[in-house]
Amino acid sequence: MMDPLISPKGHIVATSPAFANRLLHVFKNPYSYDPDRFSPGREEDKAAGAFSYISFGGGSHGCLGEPFAYLQIKAIWSHLLRNFELELVSPFPEMDWNAMVVGIKGNVMVRYKRRQLVLD
């Protein structure tokens, strides 16, 4: 009989962040938006071990691009927020949790206007 914890050669093992980040035994109210669940004192993401929040992976094969991805996100948002006034025109979008990469359902319309920057 084969050990259920050992994957046979040639088989693929995968995990789904969209599934894992909604585990009821890890997160209270996993389907609601609550960034405070990661804050000191609650830290629900650590309830099931060091890698229960797996969006960037964990262990010896964690995503090497994570720090660079966060740097890019900060740079892009810094540029947009400094240089443009943004206004959501369409209704707030609904999340598509079933997609391979979590995104939004439908289209989002944003009105933008370039800011007049004052240089010192």
Score class of each variant (00 low, 15 high):
A69P: 09
K9E: 09
S32F: 03
K46C: 11
P35L: 06
G57I: 05
L64Q: 12
H61V: 12
T15K: 15
G10N: 03
C63W: 10
A69R: 14
S52V: 05
G10F: 06
V13D: 00
H61D: 09
A20D: 11
G62I: 03
F19G: 12
L23M: 15
G59Y: 04
D45T: 03
F51L: 12
I73F: 09
S39R: 13
G10Q: 04
R22I: 11
G57K: 12
F56K: 14
P8H: 06
P30Q: 01
P17D: 07
K74D: 09
A18S: 08
T15N: 03
G58I: 08
A47L: 13
Y31P: 00
P17W: 14
V26C: 14
F56D: 12
R22V: 00
P40K: 04
G49K: 11
P17G: 03
R37E: 06
S32P: 00
K46P: 08
A47P: 00
A47Q: 09
Q72E: 14
A14F: 06
N21V: 05
K9N: 05
Y70K: 15
F68R: 12
G41F: 08
Y70S: 13
R37N: 00
A69M: 09
S39N: 08
K9T: 13
N21W: 01
A48T: 06
P17M: 10
A48C: 12
A69H: 13
V26N: 06
A20P: 00
A18E: 02
S39E: 11
G10Y: 01
E66V: 02
Y53S: 10
A20R: 12
R37D: 00
I73V: 14
R22Y: 06
A18I: 02
E66C: 00
P35A: 01
Y31M: 11
R42I: 10
A47I: 04
K74S: 12
V26M: 06
E44G: 03
N29S: 11
S60M: 11
E44R: 15
A47K: 14
V13A: 07
G41C: 01
G41I: 03
Y70F: 04
P67K: 00
R22S: 05
S39D: 11
G10L: 07
T15A: 15
A20E: 10
L71I: 06
L23T: 03
F68I: 13
D45N: 15
S16M: 02
D34T: 00
K28Q: 14
F56A: 15
R42Y: 12
S32C: 06
I73A: 10
S39T: 03
D34H: 09
A14K: 06
P8K: 06
